[in-house]
């Protein structure tokens, strides 16, 4: 009965539900958008540090999203091999 009352009350507050929902609806994509932008920046910097085309990978991740990120993680070069320097001798 209490649950029914609570749900009825929640549903009855149409205005609250709509405004609250709209608020969350705007906030959540904004947070995910910020996370996506941070991810793109990380991909750009990581690609550049490995001697890859950062702008190209940034665009790919921006367009393809998580799929682009997975492809980047698969194809990205090893940091040590991209520097061109020979590996340090074993100690």
């Amino acid at each position: 009965m209490l649950l029914q009352y609570l749900i009825s009350m929640l549903i009855a507050q149409e205005e609250w539900l709509i405004w609250g929902g709209l608020g969350l609806f705007c906030l959540i994509p904004l947070i995910w958008f910020i996370i996506a932008i941070l991810l793109c920046i990380w991909v750009y910097r990581d690609a550049e540090s490995r001697g890859m085309n950062g702008v190209l990978w940034l665009i790919i991740v921006l367009i393809a999203g998580i799929l682009g990120l997975i492809i980047y993680l698969i194809v990205r070069k090893d940091k040590r091999s991209s520097s061109g320097a020979p590996p340090p001798p074993p100690s």
């Binding site: 649950l3 029914q4 749900i7 929640l10 549903i11 929902g21 969350l24 959540i28």
Partner: peptide, 16 residues
């Protein structure tokens, strides 16, 4: 009924 109301609430979350 409570089921209808709960389903409506579920639909609301789904619509987001």
């Amino acid at each position: 009924s409570i089921a209808d109301e709960l389903a409506r609430l579920f639909d609301f979350f789904g619509s987001l």
